[in-house]
Simulated scan of single mutants.
Amino acid sequence: MSLKIGIIIASVREGRNGKVVADWVLENGQKRNDKDVTYELVDLKSFDLPLLGATPTESQGIALKNWSETMASYDGYILVTPEYNHLVPGALVNAFNFLNAEVNNKALAFVGYGFLGAARGIVGFRAHLAYQQIAMTQQQINISFVSDFKNAMTPEQEFAPGAWHTPELEALFTQLLGWSKALKALRNGEIK
Score class of each variant (00 low, 15 high):
Met1Arg: 12
Lys4Trp: 02
Ile5Phe: 07
Ile7Gly: 10
Ile9Asn: 01
Ser11His: 08
Arg16Thr: 02
Asn17Phe: 00
Gly18Lys: 06
Gly18Ala: 07
Lys19Cys: 00
Lys19Asp: 09
Trp24Phe: 11
Glu27Cys: 00
Gly29Gln: 06
Gln30Met: 11
Arg32Leu: 15
Asn33Asp: 12
Lys35Phe: 10
Lys35Glu: 15
Val42Phe: 02
Lys45Gln: 10
Phe47Ala: 09
Phe47Trp: 06
Leu49Val: 07
Gly53Asn: 09
Thr55Asn: 12
Gly61Ala: 14
Trp67Phe: 05
Ser73His: 03
Ser73Asp: 11
Tyr74Gln: 09
Asp75Tyr: 05
Ile78Cys: 00
Leu79Cys: 07
Val80Gly: 02
Glu83Arg: 06
Asn85Pro: 01
Leu87His: 13
Gly90Leu: 05
Ala91Val: 10
Ala91Pro: 00
Ala91Gln: 10
Val93Glu: 10
Phe96Thr: 09
Leu99Lys: 09
Glu102Asp: 10
Glu102Tyr: 03
Asn104Gly: 05
Asn104Pro: 01
Asn105Lys: 14
Asn105Glu: 11
Gly114Gln: 01
Leu116His: 10
Gly117Leu: 06
Gly117Ser: 09
Arg120Ala: 02
Arg126Asn: 09
Ala127Pro: 00
Ala127Met: 13
Ala127Val: 13
His128Tyr: 14
Ala130Asn: 14
Ala135Tyr: 13
Met136Leu: 12
Met136Phe: 01
Gln138Arg: 15
Ile143Gly: 05
Phe149Thr: 02
Lys150Leu: 12
Asn151Val: 01
Thr154Ile: 00
Glu156Gln: 14
Phe159Ser: 10
Gly162Glu: 12
Thr166Pro: 00
Pro167Ile: 09
Pro167Glu: 10
Phe173Thr: 14
Thr174Phe: 04
Gln175Met: 07
Leu176Tyr: 08
Leu177Glu: 10
Leu177Val: 07
Ser180Gly: 14
Lys181Thr: 15
Ala185Asp: 14
Glu190Met: 12
Glu190Cys: 02
Ile191Asp: 10
Lys192Ile: 12
